[in-house]
Design a protein around this nucleic acid. Sequence first.
DNA 1: CGACATATTGAGATCCATCAACCAATGTGG
DNA 2: CCACATTGGTTGATGGATCTCAATATGTCG
Lengths: 188, 188
Amino acid sequence: MTSYIEKINNYIKALDNDTLSALQSISSEKKYKKGDLLLRQNEICGKSYLLISGIARKYYLNDGKEITTELYFENDLAISFDSYTLQQPSREFIEALTDVTVSITHYQAFQDAKAKHQKLLSLDLMLAEYYGMWVENRLFQFHTMSATERYLNIFNKSPHIVQTIPLTIIASYLGISLETLSRIRAKI
Amino acid sequence: MTSYIEKINNYIKALDNDTLSALQSISSEKKYKKGDLLLRQNEICGKSYLLISGIARKYYLNDGKEITTELYFENDLAISFDSYTLQQPSREFIEALTDVTVSITHYQAFQDAKAKHQKLLSLDLMLAEYYGMWVENRLFQFHTMSATERYLNIFNKSPHIVQTIPLTIIASYLGISLETLSRIRAKI
DNA sequence: CGACATATTGAGATCCATCAACCAATGTGG
DNA sequence: CCACATTGGTTGATGGATCTCAATATGTCG
Protein backbone atom coordinates (compact mmCIF):
# COMPACT_ATOMS: atom_id res chain seq x y z
CA MET A 1 0.00 0.00 0.00
CA THR A 2 2.99 2.25 0.57
CA SER A 3 3.81 1.63 -3.06
CA TYR A 4 0.54 3.28 -3.97
CA ILE A 5 1.82 6.56 -2.53
CA GLU A 6 4.82 6.25 -4.77
CA LYS A 7 2.58 5.58 -7.71
CA ILE A 8 0.60 8.72 -6.90
CA ASN A 9 3.75 10.80 -6.47
CA ASN A 10 5.16 9.53 -9.73
CA TYR A 11 1.88 10.32 -11.40
CA ILE A 12 2.06 13.89 -10.15
CA LYS A 13 5.67 14.26 -11.25
CA ALA A 14 4.76 13.05 -14.72
CA LEU A 15 1.90 15.51 -15.18
CA ASP A 16 2.07 17.69 -18.29
CA ASN A 17 2.73 21.38 -17.79
CA ASP A 18 -0.79 22.38 -18.67
CA THR A 19 -2.32 20.22 -15.96
CA LEU A 20 0.37 21.09 -13.47
CA SER A 21 -0.03 24.82 -13.91
CA ALA A 22 -3.79 24.46 -13.60
CA LEU A 23 -3.22 22.75 -10.28
CA GLN A 24 -0.74 25.35 -9.12
CA SER A 25 -2.99 28.22 -10.08
CA ILE A 26 -5.63 27.06 -7.61
CA SER A 27 -3.23 26.35 -4.75
CA SER A 28 -1.66 28.73 -2.29
CA GLU A 29 0.67 28.46 0.63
CA LYS A 30 -0.22 29.36 4.18
CA LYS A 31 1.36 29.04 7.61
CA TYR A 32 -0.31 28.09 10.87
CA LYS A 33 0.96 28.28 14.42
CA LYS A 34 1.08 25.33 16.75
CA GLY A 35 -2.39 24.83 18.21
CA ASP A 36 -4.21 26.60 15.37
CA LEU A 37 -7.30 24.91 13.98
CA LEU A 38 -7.31 24.46 10.21
CA LEU A 39 -10.85 23.11 10.36
CA ARG A 40 -13.44 23.27 13.12
CA GLN A 41 -16.32 20.97 13.89
CA ASN A 42 -19.51 21.96 12.07
CA GLU A 43 -17.61 23.90 9.45
CA ILE A 44 -17.76 22.57 5.91
CA CYS A 45 -14.38 21.31 4.78
CA GLY A 46 -14.05 23.49 1.71
CA LYS A 47 -10.30 23.17 1.34
CA SER A 48 -7.66 20.48 1.23
CA TYR A 49 -4.39 20.98 3.08
CA LEU A 50 -1.20 19.46 1.75
CA LEU A 51 1.40 19.56 4.50
CA ILE A 52 4.65 21.11 3.33
CA SER A 53 6.20 21.07 6.80
CA GLY A 54 5.12 20.39 10.37
CA ILE A 55 2.70 17.95 11.99
CA ALA A 56 -1.08 18.04 12.25
CA ARG A 57 -3.91 15.83 13.32
CA LYS A 58 -7.60 15.27 12.75
CA TYR A 59 -9.85 14.52 15.72
CA TYR A 60 -13.41 14.63 16.94
CA LEU A 61 -15.10 14.96 20.29
CA ASN A 62 -16.88 12.04 21.87
CA ASP A 63 -18.39 12.61 25.32
CA GLY A 64 -16.12 15.61 25.58
CA LYS A 65 -13.02 13.55 24.85
CA GLU A 66 -10.80 14.15 21.88
CA ILE A 67 -10.41 11.10 19.64
CA THR A 68 -7.62 11.44 17.12
CA THR A 69 -8.40 9.84 13.78
CA GLU A 70 -5.41 10.71 11.66
CA LEU A 71 -1.91 12.11 12.00
CA TYR A 72 -0.36 14.16 9.23
CA PHE A 73 3.28 14.64 8.38
CA GLU A 74 5.15 16.21 5.53
CA ASN A 75 3.55 15.49 2.17
CA ASP A 76 0.29 14.18 3.67
CA LEU A 77 -3.04 15.52 2.52
CA ALA A 78 -5.31 16.65 5.33
CA ILE A 79 -9.08 16.83 4.87
CA SER A 80 -12.17 15.71 6.69
CA PHE A 81 -13.06 13.13 4.07
CA ASP A 82 -16.82 12.97 4.40
CA SER A 83 -17.23 16.69 4.99
CA TYR A 84 -15.11 17.44 1.96
CA THR A 85 -16.82 14.88 -0.25
CA LEU A 86 -20.38 15.71 0.71
CA GLN A 87 -19.70 19.39 1.43
CA GLN A 88 -21.52 18.97 4.70
CA PRO A 89 -20.57 20.14 8.20
CA SER A 90 -17.59 18.31 9.62
CA ARG A 91 -17.68 16.30 12.83
CA GLU A 92 -13.90 16.52 12.90
CA PHE A 93 -11.34 19.19 13.71
CA ILE A 94 -7.97 19.57 12.03
CA GLU A 95 -5.31 20.98 14.32
CA ALA A 96 -1.67 21.99 13.87
CA LEU A 97 0.43 20.05 16.39
CA THR A 98 3.49 22.11 15.49
CA ASP A 99 3.90 25.19 13.38
CA VAL A 100 2.92 24.05 9.90
CA THR A 101 3.12 25.24 6.34
CA VAL A 102 0.44 23.94 4.01
CA SER A 103 -0.56 24.19 0.40
CA ILE A 104 -4.28 24.95 0.29
CA THR A 105 -6.54 24.02 -2.60
CA HIS A 106 -10.17 25.07 -2.58
CA TYR A 107 -12.76 22.39 -3.12
CA GLN A 108 -14.74 24.13 -5.82
CA ALA A 109 -11.69 25.26 -7.75
CA PHE A 110 -10.46 21.68 -7.77
CA GLN A 111 -13.87 20.42 -8.93
CA ASP A 112 -13.73 22.87 -11.83
CA ALA A 113 -10.17 21.89 -12.66
CA LYS A 114 -11.10 18.19 -12.65
CA ALA A 115 -13.78 18.86 -15.25
CA LYS A 116 -11.20 20.39 -17.54
CA HIS A 117 -8.26 18.14 -16.84
CA GLN A 118 -8.98 14.44 -16.87
CA LYS A 119 -5.64 13.73 -15.25
CA LEU A 120 -6.72 15.61 -12.15
CA LEU A 121 -9.84 13.49 -12.05
CA SER A 122 -7.66 10.38 -12.18
CA LEU A 123 -5.50 11.84 -9.45
CA ASP A 124 -8.50 12.46 -7.27
CA LEU A 125 -9.58 8.86 -7.79
CA MET A 126 -6.16 7.61 -6.74
CA LEU A 127 -6.27 9.76 -3.62
CA ALA A 128 -9.73 8.49 -2.71
CA GLU A 129 -8.62 4.91 -3.31
CA TYR A 130 -5.60 5.43 -1.13
CA TYR A 131 -7.70 6.84 1.67
CA GLY A 132 -10.17 3.97 1.37
CA MET A 133 -7.39 1.42 1.69
CA TRP A 134 -5.84 3.30 4.55
CA VAL A 135 -9.06 3.40 6.57
CA GLU A 136 -9.82 -0.20 5.68
CA ASN A 137 -6.45 -1.18 7.06
CA ARG A 138 -7.02 0.79 10.22
CA LEU A 139 -10.38 -0.88 10.72
CA PHE A 140 -8.72 -4.23 10.12
CA GLN A 141 -6.32 -3.51 12.95
CA PHE A 142 -9.09 -2.52 15.33
CA HIS A 143 -10.89 -5.69 14.39
CA THR A 144 -8.06 -8.13 14.92
CA MET A 145 -5.36 -6.69 17.15
CA SER A 146 -5.12 -6.07 20.87
CA ALA A 147 -4.08 -2.69 22.26
CA THR A 148 -0.53 -3.92 22.73
CA GLU A 149 -0.34 -5.24 19.19
CA ARG A 150 -1.65 -1.98 17.78
CA TYR A 151 0.91 -0.02 19.74
CA LEU A 152 3.77 -2.28 18.67
CA ASN A 153 2.61 -1.98 15.10
CA ILE A 154 2.78 1.79 15.16
CA PHE A 155 5.99 1.67 17.17
CA ASN A 156 7.68 -0.52 14.58
CA LYS A 157 6.24 0.93 11.40
CA SER A 158 6.13 4.59 12.35
CA PRO A 159 8.64 5.26 15.13
CA HIS A 160 8.55 8.96 14.31
CA ILE A 161 4.96 9.05 15.59
CA VAL A 162 5.94 7.69 18.99
CA GLN A 163 8.86 10.03 19.18
CA THR A 164 7.13 13.26 18.28
CA ILE A 165 3.50 13.01 19.35
CA PRO A 166 2.22 13.29 22.97
CA LEU A 167 1.08 9.97 24.39
CA THR A 168 -2.36 11.39 25.11
CA ILE A 169 -2.90 11.80 21.39
CA ILE A 170 -1.34 8.48 20.47
CA ALA A 171 -3.59 6.73 22.99
CA SER A 172 -6.75 8.17 21.48
CA TYR A 173 -5.43 7.37 18.01
CA LEU A 174 -5.02 3.75 19.11
CA GLY A 175 -8.46 3.77 20.69
CA ILE A 176 -7.21 3.14 24.23
CA SER A 177 -6.90 5.19 27.40
CA LEU A 178 -3.75 7.07 28.24
CA GLU A 179 -3.28 4.90 31.32
CA THR A 180 -3.42 1.69 29.33
CA LEU A 181 -0.89 3.01 26.85
CA SER A 182 1.40 4.01 29.68
CA ARG A 183 1.22 0.50 31.12
CA ILE A 184 1.83 -1.10 27.74
CA ARG A 185 4.94 0.99 27.32
CA ALA A 186 6.16 0.15 30.83
CA LYS A 187 6.02 -3.55 30.05
CA ILE A 188 8.23 -3.34 26.98
CA MET B 1 -24.35 9.49 3.35
CA THR B 2 -27.33 7.50 2.11
CA SER B 3 -28.03 10.44 -0.13
CA TYR B 4 -24.72 9.84 -1.83
CA ILE B 5 -26.00 6.47 -3.08
CA GLU B 6 -28.94 8.27 -4.57
CA LYS B 7 -26.61 10.76 -6.19
CA ILE B 8 -24.63 7.89 -7.70
CA ASN B 9 -27.75 6.12 -8.89
CA ASN B 10 -29.07 9.29 -10.44
CA TYR B 11 -25.74 9.82 -12.10
CA ILE B 12 -25.92 6.36 -13.63
CA LYS B 13 -29.50 6.89 -14.80
CA ALA B 14 -28.50 10.15 -16.45
CA LEU B 15 -25.59 8.64 -18.40
CA ASP B 16 -25.66 9.19 -22.14
CA ASN B 17 -26.28 6.17 -24.36
CA ASP B 18 -22.72 5.99 -25.56
CA THR B 19 -21.30 5.70 -22.06
CA LEU B 20 -24.06 3.40 -20.95
CA SER B 21 -23.60 0.97 -23.80
CA ALA B 22 -19.85 0.98 -23.21
CA LEU B 23 -20.55 -0.05 -19.65
CA GLN B 24 -23.02 -2.70 -20.65
CA SER B 25 -20.71 -4.15 -23.27
CA ILE B 26 -18.17 -5.04 -20.60
CA SER B 27 -20.66 -6.45 -18.10
CA SER B 28 -22.28 -9.87 -18.01
CA GLU B 29 -24.71 -11.64 -15.78
CA LYS B 30 -23.93 -14.75 -13.79
CA LYS B 31 -25.62 -16.85 -11.14
CA TYR B 32 -24.07 -18.43 -8.06
CA LYS B 33 -25.45 -20.99 -5.65
CA LYS B 34 -25.67 -20.43 -1.92
CA GLY B 35 -22.27 -21.11 -0.42
CA ASP B 36 -20.33 -20.48 -3.63
CA LEU B 37 -17.22 -18.34 -3.37
CA LEU B 38 -17.09 -15.43 -5.81
CA LEU B 39 -13.57 -14.60 -4.66
CA ARG B 40 -11.07 -16.65 -2.68
CA GLN B 41 -8.26 -15.54 -0.44
CA ASN B 42 -4.98 -15.04 -2.36
CA GLU B 43 -6.78 -14.62 -5.64
CA ILE B 44 -6.53 -11.24 -7.29
CA CYS B 45 -9.90 -9.49 -7.36
CA GLY B 46 -10.08 -8.96 -11.12
CA LYS B 47 -13.83 -8.43 -11.28
CA SER B 48 -16.49 -6.37 -9.60
CA TYR B 49 -19.81 -7.95 -8.70
CA LEU B 50 -22.97 -5.89 -8.74
CA LEU B 51 -25.67 -7.82 -6.88
CA ILE B 52 -28.85 -8.09 -8.89
CA SER B 53 -30.51 -10.43 -6.41
CA GLY B 54 -29.57 -12.39 -3.31
CA ILE B 55 -27.24 -11.77 -0.39
CA ALA B 56 -23.46 -12.07 -0.14
CA ARG B 57 -20.70 -11.22 2.28
CA LYS B 58 -17.00 -10.47 2.34
CA TYR B 59 -14.86 -11.99 5.10
CA TYR B 60 -11.34 -12.96 6.03
CA LEU B 61 -9.78 -15.52 8.30
CA ASN B 62 -8.08 -14.51 11.51
CA ASP B 63 -6.70 -17.30 13.67
CA GLY B 64 -8.94 -19.65 11.73
CA LYS B 65 -12.05 -17.60 12.51
CA GLU B 66 -14.15 -15.95 9.87
CA ILE B 67 -14.49 -12.20 10.33
CA THR B 68 -17.18 -10.67 8.16
CA THR B 69 -16.28 -7.24 6.85
CA GLU B 70 -19.20 -6.39 4.61
CA LEU B 71 -22.70 -7.57 3.78
CA TYR B 72 -24.12 -7.16 0.31
CA PHE B 73 -27.74 -6.88 -0.76
CA GLU B 74 -29.49 -6.04 -3.98
CA ASN B 75 -27.77 -3.22 -5.87
CA ASP B 76 -24.59 -3.34 -3.76
CA LEU B 77 -21.21 -3.57 -5.42
CA ALA B 78 -19.03 -6.36 -4.07
CA ILE B 79 -15.25 -6.23 -4.39
CA SER B 80 -12.22 -6.70 -2.20
CA PHE B 81 -11.29 -3.04 -2.31
CA ASP B 82 -7.53 -3.20 -1.84
CA SER B 83 -7.10 -6.32 -3.94
CA TYR B 84 -9.12 -4.74 -6.73
CA THR B 85 -7.36 -1.40 -6.54
CA LEU B 86 -3.83 -2.72 -6.30
CA GLN B 87 -4.48 -5.87 -8.31
CA GLN B 88 -2.77 -7.83 -5.59
CA PRO B 89 -3.82 -11.09 -3.87
CA SER B 90 -6.88 -10.69 -1.68
CA ARG B 91 -6.92 -11.41 2.02
CA GLU B 92 -10.69 -11.59 1.82
CA PHE B 93 -13.25 -14.05 0.49
CA ILE B 94 -16.55 -13.12 -1.11
CA GLU B 95 -19.27 -15.68 -0.51
CA ALA B 96 -22.88 -16.06 -1.64
CA LEU B 97 -25.08 -16.35 1.45
CA THR B 98 -28.09 -17.20 -0.71
CA ASP B 99 -28.40 -17.98 -4.39
CA VAL B 100 -27.31 -14.78 -6.10
CA THR B 101 -27.38 -13.19 -9.51
CA VAL B 102 -24.64 -10.68 -10.22
CA SER B 103 -23.52 -8.41 -12.98
CA ILE B 104 -19.80 -8.92 -13.46
CA THR B 105 -17.45 -6.29 -14.84
CA HIS B 106 -13.81 -7.11 -15.45
CA TYR B 107 -11.23 -4.83 -13.91
CA GLN B 108 -9.15 -4.28 -17.00
CA ALA B 109 -12.12 -3.72 -19.28
CA PHE B 110 -13.39 -1.09 -16.87
CA GLN B 111 -9.97 0.58 -16.74
CA ASP B 112 -9.99 0.80 -20.53
CA ALA B 113 -13.53 2.12 -20.56
CA LYS B 114 -12.65 4.79 -18.00
CA ALA B 115 -9.87 6.06 -20.27
CA LYS B 116 -12.37 6.54 -23.07
CA HIS B 117 -15.36 7.74 -21.10
CA GLN B 118 -14.68 10.44 -18.56
CA LYS B 119 -18.08 9.90 -16.99
CA LEU B 120 -17.07 6.39 -15.99
CA LEU B 121 -13.98 7.82 -14.36
CA SER B 122 -16.19 10.20 -12.41
CA LEU B 123 -18.42 7.28 -11.50
CA ASP B 124 -15.47 5.30 -10.24
CA LEU B 125 -14.42 8.25 -8.12
CA MET B 126 -17.88 8.49 -6.60
CA LEU B 127 -17.84 4.79 -5.80
CA ALA B 128 -14.43 5.04 -4.17
CA GLU B 129 -15.57 8.06 -2.19
CA TYR B 130 -18.64 6.24 -1.04
CA TYR B 131 -16.62 3.25 0.09
CA GLY B 132 -14.18 5.52 1.91
CA MET B 133 -16.99 7.20 3.81
CA TRP B 134 -18.63 3.88 4.55
CA VAL B 135 -15.47 2.39 6.04
CA GLU B 136 -14.73 5.60 7.89
CA ASN B 137 -18.14 5.42 9.46
CA ARG B 138 -17.66 1.81 10.44
CA LEU B 139 -14.32 2.64 12.06
CA PHE B 140 -16.03 5.51 13.85
CA GLN B 141 -18.50 3.06 15.35
CA PHE B 142 -15.79 0.68 16.49
CA HIS B 143 -13.99 3.61 18.04
CA THR B 144 -16.88 5.07 20.00
CA MET B 145 -19.62 2.53 20.53
CA SER B 146 -19.98 -0.48 22.81
CA ALA B 147 -21.05 -3.86 21.47
CA THR B 148 -24.64 -3.20 22.55
CA GLU B 149 -24.70 0.18 20.86
CA ARG B 150 -23.29 -1.25 17.65
CA TYR B 151 -25.92 -3.96 17.64
CA LEU B 152 -28.74 -1.52 18.31
CA ASN B 153 -27.46 0.67 15.56
CA ILE B 154 -27.60 -2.10 13.00
CA PHE B 155 -30.90 -3.32 14.44
CA ASN B 156 -32.49 0.09 13.99
CA LYS B 157 -30.92 1.17 10.73
CA SER B 158 -30.80 -2.15 8.92
CA PRO B 159 -33.41 -4.49 10.40
CA HIS B 160 -33.24 -6.62 7.24
CA ILE B 161 -29.73 -7.64 8.25
CA VAL B 162 -30.83 -8.94 11.62
CA GLN B 163 -33.75 -10.73 10.06
CA THR B 164 -31.96 -12.51 7.25
CA ILE B 165 -28.36 -13.14 8.31
CA PRO B 166 -27.23 -15.84 10.78
CA LEU B 167 -26.20 -14.43 14.15
CA THR B 168 -22.77 -16.01 13.83
CA ILE B 169 -22.07 -13.79 10.86
CA ILE B 170 -23.62 -10.69 12.41
CA ALA B 171 -21.49 -11.18 15.52
CA SER B 172 -18.26 -11.28 13.54
CA TYR B 173 -19.45 -8.27 11.54
CA LEU B 174 -19.94 -6.39 14.79
CA GLY B 175 -16.57 -7.55 16.05
CA ILE B 176 -17.97 -9.50 19.01
CA SER B 177 -18.41 -13.16 19.89
CA LEU B 178 -21.58 -15.04 19.12
CA GLU B 179 -22.20 -15.54 22.83
CA THR B 180 -21.99 -11.84 23.58
CA LEU B 181 -24.40 -11.07 20.77
CA SER B 182 -26.80 -13.68 22.07
CA ARG B 183 -26.72 -12.12 25.52
CA ILE B 184 -27.19 -8.63 24.13
CA ARG B 185 -30.28 -9.79 22.29
CA ALA B 186 -31.65 -11.56 25.36
CA LYS B 187 -31.51 -8.32 27.35
CA ILE B 188 -33.61 -6.33 24.91
C1' DC C 1 8.82 30.24 40.54
C1' DG C 2 4.03 29.08 39.65
C1' DA C 3 0.78 27.01 36.67
C1' DC C 4 -0.78 23.87 33.45
C1' DA C 5 -0.12 20.13 30.48
C1' DT C 6 1.80 15.50 30.34
C1' DA C 7 2.75 11.00 32.18
C1' DT C 8 2.91 7.20 35.74
C1' DT C 9 0.96 4.11 39.03
C1' DG C 10 -2.55 1.76 41.97
C1' DA C 11 -7.22 -0.18 43.01
C1' DG C 12 -11.58 -1.45 41.69
C1' DA C 13 -15.20 -1.99 38.25
C1' DT C 14 -16.88 -3.35 33.71
C1' DC C 15 -17.07 -5.31 29.39
C1' DC C 16 -16.39 -8.96 26.74
C1' DA C 17 -13.97 -13.44 25.36
C1' DT C 18 -13.40 -18.16 26.14
C1' DC C 19 -14.67 -22.71 27.38
C1' DA C 20 -18.20 -25.87 28.04
C1' DA C 21 -22.68 -27.84 28.25
C1' DC C 22 -26.91 -27.92 26.22
C1' DC C 23 -30.91 -27.30 23.05
C1' DA C 24 -33.60 -26.79 18.66
C1' DA C 25 -34.08 -27.10 13.83
C1' DT C 26 -32.63 -28.98 9.57
C1' DG C 27 -30.92 -32.18 6.49
C1' DT C 28 -29.16 -36.71 4.90
C1' DG C 29 -28.08 -41.54 4.14
C1' DG C 30 -29.76 -45.96 4.72
C1' DC D 1 -39.15 -42.47 7.82
C1' DC D 2 -35.91 -42.99 11.32
C1' DA D 3 -31.22 -42.19 13.40
C1' DC D 4 -27.79 -39.34 13.52
C1' DA D 5 -24.81 -35.54 12.12
C1' DT D 6 -24.65 -30.69 11.33
C1' DT D 7 -25.70 -26.01 11.85
C1' DG D 8 -27.28 -22.26 14.59
C1' DG D 9 -28.27 -20.46 18.96
C1' DT D 10 -28.55 -20.13 24.23
C1' DT D 11 -26.82 -20.12 28.86
C1' DG D 12 -23.49 -20.42 32.83
C1' DA D 13 -18.94 -19.90 34.99
C1' DT D 14 -14.56 -17.83 34.84
C1' DG D 15 -10.67 -14.93 33.49
C1' DG D 16 -8.41 -11.30 31.06
C1' DA D 17 -8.13 -6.88 28.96
C1' DT D 18 -9.09 -2.41 29.46
C1' DC D 19 -11.56 1.62 31.62
C1' DT D 20 -12.32 4.82 35.30
C1' DC D 21 -11.16 7.36 39.26
C1' DA D 22 -7.70 9.10 42.09
C1' DA D 23 -3.20 10.23 43.71
C1' DT D 24 1.26 11.41 42.52
C1' DA D 25 5.22 12.70 39.69
C1' DT D 26 7.50 15.23 35.87
C1' DG D 27 8.02 18.33 32.80
C1' DT D 28 7.74 22.94 30.40
C1' DC D 29 6.86 27.57 29.53
C1' DG D 30 5.61 32.29 30.46
